[in-house]
């Protein structure tokens, strides 16, 4: 275990730099899906509204939080690559797919229970709960939301795999 941590620590600059790149690309894929009308999901906006209710500030905070989250996940991916002793692109892709599936199958459906500003399907929204819940697999945000989310995470995994020297 120490060896894995030491390997990641030795490569922290690579992980941090490419984590930033991978997060930026993932964001672009998701935002692109929004612009093309494939999905209405905006993870930065959902993250931002965890902390503020003002739409403008929510976008700014959301992008910062998303960036920090992307960096943290970069170290998690690096740990996995080191543990598996491989960082082939397809390994990264598989990790990304698993990550994406977790997001659409677990994270998004449970979001209404933890998000302070999201309505649930069972209650009328109060003044504070105004955001539309994502529904199963995020399908309330558009039919292609699961595909766009998994695709973006797959890209993230591939970039991290190609960058990390395991």
């Amino acid at each position: 275990m120490n060896g894995i941590l030491q390997e990641v620590a030795a490569n922290w600059v690579v992980v941090a730099a490419w984590g930033l790149v991978a997060t930026a690309v993932t964001t672009s894929v998701l935002e692109g899906a929004q612009l093309f009308g494939f999905s209405r999901l905006s993870l930065p906006f959902l993250f931002g509204t965890f902390v503020v209710s003002n739409r403008r500030r929510a976008m700014i905070f959301g992008y910062l939080l998303y960036l920090v989250g992307g960096w943290l996940f970069a170290f998690f991916y690096a740990l996995l690559f080191s543990a598996l002793a491989t960082s082939e692109w397809w390994v990264g892709a598989l990790l990304g797919i698993a990550h994406g599936l977790f997001l659409v199958a677990v994270f998004l459906p449970t979001l209404p229970m933890i998000h302070p500003r999201m309505a649930t399907e069972y209650d009328a929204p109060g003044p504070g709960q105004r955001l539309e819940p994502p529904g199963a697999f995020g399908l309330h945000y558009g039919k292609l939301t699961p595909i766009a989310t998994v695709a973006s995470q797959t890209v993230y995994g591939c970039i991290m795999a190609l960058a990390y020297p395991a």
Partner: peptide, 15 residues
């Protein structure tokens, strides 16, 4: 109505 964004659910009544 919202386009290309997470929907906002407005309240009824006093709002």
């Amino acid at each position: 109505f919202c386009r290309r964004d997470v929907g906002a659910i407005p309240g009824l009544g006093p709002e």
